[in-house]
């Protein structure tokens, strides 16, 4: 059985993170922590610039799957925020197929800045059964 429906890699490159991006994510998510919005708050927390919400990075990792599979195919998504994406950083998001079963596929995830600094790692599992229903 082949898994032509499961590409070996999925990739998404995102342009520089703007202040508007972070404000919009704050409003949409309800995460109003000033660490993500305010330069002084970021400095007080030990960062030279405001950092992007980890959940924003995770949401973009989710897009790797909603772009390729049906909207409800994702069954598990986990990330470890190993670094921080800062205001102005560009991101490269990748999923690498690690395992397939009859009705499911598992991917390993990575998010890094375009300069190669790690931001997040993780894994995801998609069901392929939903593809038929979708």
């Amino acid at each position: 059985m082949t898994h032509m429906r499961c590409p070996p890699t999925l990739e998404l490159a995102l342009g520089p993170i703007t202040a508007v991006d972070l404000a919009l994510y704050a409003a949409a998510s309800g995460d109003l922590n000033p660490l993500h919005l305010d330069a002084d708050a970021a400095r007080a927390a030990g960062f030279e610039r405001p950092i992007a919400h980890g959940m924003r990075t995770m949401a973009c990792l989710g897009r790797l799957f909603t772009d390729r599979f049906v909207a409800t195919a994702l069954r598990m998504l986990e990330t470890r925020f190993v670094g921080s994406a800062k205001l102005g950083d560009s991101l490269v998001l990748r999923a690498t197929l690690t395992h397939t079963e009859a009705d499911a596929a598992t991917y390993e995830l990575s998010a890094q800045t375009s300069a190669g600094a790690p931001v997040a790692t993780g894994s995801a599992r998609v069901t392929l059964a939903a593809e038929r229903a979708g």
């Binding site: 922590n33 660490l35 708050a41 007080a44 927390a45 919400h53 980890g54 959940m55 995770m58 909207a71 409800t72 994702l74 069954r75 598990m76 998504l77 986990e78 990330t79 470890r80 925020f81 921080s84």
Partner: peptide
């Protein structure tokens, strides 16, 4: 205090859309 707080890990399991 919020100042030193960071999100370290997050996991979701989706059972029903």
């Amino acid at each position: 205090p919020m100042t030193g707080v960071l999100h370290a890990e997050q996991r979701f399991e989706f059972e029903v859309p």
